[in-house]
């Protein structure tokens, strides 16, 4: 149920993001989803890729500060109130969301939302109890 996300530390200076994507491209790694959180001085790039372990090693070898984190990818109905329903379920059991970002999948009409929460197992359990579809890692990598 868990998806491996790769995070990369980036200084706010030109060309750094391009360098990350270049390294991934050279290693035949495809980006499934990404998001950047930034402050005045630095940014954190979060990536879902088709092949997380080689991606981690490639970035590490290229000299980046990299880490992997487990997140969940939740299928959210592409209709008004779709995301609200998921958030409500998590809120009811006091699961705090560190951050989230969304991307579209090609196959179905549903949106995918990546959630980063501290209580991962608890979140998976409560979402499943409420019939929310969570994608297996292998399915996300292969999208």
């Amino acid at each position: 149920m868990k998806v491996k996300q790769i995070s990369v530390f980036l200084e706010n200076k030109s060309g750094r993001l391009a360098q990350v994507t270049r390294v991934l491209g050279e290693n035949n790694i495809n980006i499934r989803a990404l998001s950047i959180a930034d402050t005045t001085d630095f940014g954190i790039l979060r990536l879902i890729v088709n092949n997380p372990d080689p991606a981690y090693r490639a970035l590490k070898d290229a000299g980046f500060t990299v880490s992997t984190t487990e997140v969940i990818a939740v299928e959210v109905k592409d209709e008004p109130g779709g995301l609200a329903r998921v958030l409500e379920i998590l809120q009811n059991v006091n699961i705090n969301i560190e951050y989230l970002y969304a991307f579209l999948q090609k196959a179905t009409n549903a949106a995918l939302v990546v959630f980063r929460v501290e209580q991962l197992d608890e979140a998976i359990k409560v979402l499943q109890e409420n019939n929310i579809s969570i994608l297996e890692g292998s399915r996300v990598y292969a999208l």
Partner: peptide, 11 residues
């Protein structure tokens, strides 16, 4: 920033 200090969370 070493790996040890790095976090995916801005906070």
């Amino acid at each position: 920033l070493s790996d040890k200090f790095f976090s995916d969370k801005v906070r």
